[in-house]
Design a protein around this nucleic acid. Structure first.
Length: 420
RNA sequence: GGACGGGUGGGUGAGUGGCUAAAACCAGCAGACUGUAAAUCUGCCGCUCCUUGCGGGCUACGGAGGUUCGAAUCCUCCCCCGUCCA
């Protein structure tokens, strides 16, 4: 925040249009059309009016993960260039349900769920965006006021055949899967977001391309200059195959602890690491290329490159200090095979009768059921204070209050058991 | 409104009266190997009890009833999905 920046009212990009373009282009999947974006940037530079750039998000889940941050980070980049970042919460549209990427109709959310999710979203989003410079809007603001007549008129602006061109609908149709009529309304209604916001650019993951293109068409129908469609690649999840998503369990949530994040990020494949570098860090393209080359030639160990990646990402959310601590802890536990500095603890009431380890594992949620706990033990996946226990009948001593021991279940899960 | 096809474990999907807790594949979990990587290999993969045994009990093939010694499989009604015709 420089002194110079404060003086002139609209803090406007000092960078040239070419420089801005270069900065913004990094990591983009597709820009439709890039000439339009360039033209808009030029106009903005001339008039001093920042571009209005928005990202619409349906609060379908209570928290966001790294996959969501790819697009949010791009919004931040526009913000960095002095443009107006608009974070649109689709509180109304979330109640309809976006058919994108869905192989079946998604159950709509209730008002209560949406409100609760929206609340937790914002706090998380501002770990990336500058709170003071971000325009936050809710689409119920305009969608909630529409009459059925308005809806009918809106529908008159689009054709069924074009709607059915999209992959989700096409394939469901081909596979005899249901498509509900309200799903067709989703892209049309959200198009009104673009209309009401008078957006110059809309951001989204590649899977949103179809929706955003419709938004652009509808803007034109309403007499506005069509927005630029700016899409970003979908972040592949920890499994290296499917997109990162909460329901697939292959995600890293941004509110997770630094240790958890570190562990998860280190478990990705070496190949995947490069797209994470590209989409989740601000490393310049040429720096990434150099790292890649160093790994290829053996100058840099892939594990070290991955550690640096994990460190960089975590520092963004938790700060440099925490990132370093997470790294040290990781090395301690996994490289040096020592017990973790601190593990989550679980308190059990004192019990004077023999208590099976398997019961304890289930009770403390280290295993989903007693049967699973038994399997885990038999397969050699359980350790107490560093010693493997593979006897199903093993009993733990819970008779002395204050006693504690460290249980390891599988590779990553540790729990300190404390007798009360 | 009519004709037809279909609903099986987290997913895909076999199975048409007992040998089926239900094939196969995927996902998941554990172990080995490692760099907690990937790949690979091995094992596991409904719940529960114990004397941990190719052990006992319970629950499960859209829902509810019924036939039968015995049903995911047969019958009846209901719910849901799709296709074609109107």
């Amino acid at each position: 925040m420089s002194e110079a920046g404060k003086k002139s009212a609209p803090q406007h990009p000092q960078k040239s249009v070419e420089e801005q373009l270069a900065y913004l282009r990094k990591g983009a999947a597709e820009i439709i059309r890039e000439e339009d974006l360039k033209a808009k940037l030029e106009l903005s530079a001339k008039t001093g009016n920042p571009l209005r750039v928005y990202l619409g998000v349906d609060p379908t889940a209570p928290d966001i993960h790294l996959g969501h941050t790819v697009v949010i980070r791009k919004l931040k980049h526009f913000q960095d260039m002095g443009h107006t970042a608009i974070f649109l919460i689709g509180d109304f549209s979330a109640m309809i349900g976006d058919p994108t990427g869905q192989s079946e109709t998604r159950p709509p959310l209730t008002r209560e769920q949406v409100d609760a999710n929206a609340k937790t979203y914002l706090d998380q989003v501002f770990k990336i965006l500058d709170r003071d410079k971000t325009e936050v809007r809710y689409n119920s603001e305009w969608l909630g006021k529409m009459s059925s007549y308005d809806v009918v008129r809106l529908c008159g602006h689009y054709r069924l055949a074009r709607m059915l061109e999209r992959e989700d609908f096409r394939s469901r149709l081909d596979n005899n899967l249901p498509i509900s009529v309200h799903e067709l309304l989703y892209p049309l209604l959200t198009a009104l977001d673009a209309v009401n916001l008078k957006s110059d650019v809309e951001l989204g993951a590649t899977e949103q391309k179809f929706n955003i293109l419709i938004h652009r068409d509808i803007q034109r129908e309403y007499g506005l200059s069509p927005q630029v469609v700016f899409t970003l690649p979908i972040l592949v999840g920890l499994d290296g195959v499917k997109k990162m998503s909460k329901s697939l369990g292959n995600y890293v949530g941004i509110t997770e602890s630094p240790q958890e994040m570190f562990g998860k990020l280190m478990s990705i494949s070496d190949d995947l690491m490069w797209s994470y570098y590209e989409l989740l860090t601000d490393f310049e393209e040429r720096v990434i290329v150099r790292l890649k080359e160093e790994v290829r030639t053996g100058v840099l160990h892939p594990m070290d490159a991955k550690m640096q990646l994990a460190h960089t990402i975590i520092a963004n959310f938790h700060g440099e200090e925490a990132a370093r601590a997470a790294r040290d802890e990781f090395q301690r536990v996994f490289r040096d095979r020592q017990a973790p500095e601190e593990a989550p603890s679980y308190r059990v009431p004192k019990r004077t009768w023999p208590y099976k380890l398997a019961w304890l594992l289930a009770e403390s949620k280290l295993a989903d059921s007693r049967a699973e706990a038994q399997r885990l033990i038999m397969q050699g996946g359980v350790e107490i204070d560093g010693h493997r226990v593979d006897d199903v009948k093993y009993e733990v001593d819970l008779s002395k209050p204050g006693a504690s021991f460290l249980v390891r279940a599988g590779k990553k899960r540790f729990l300190r058991i404390i007798v009360e």
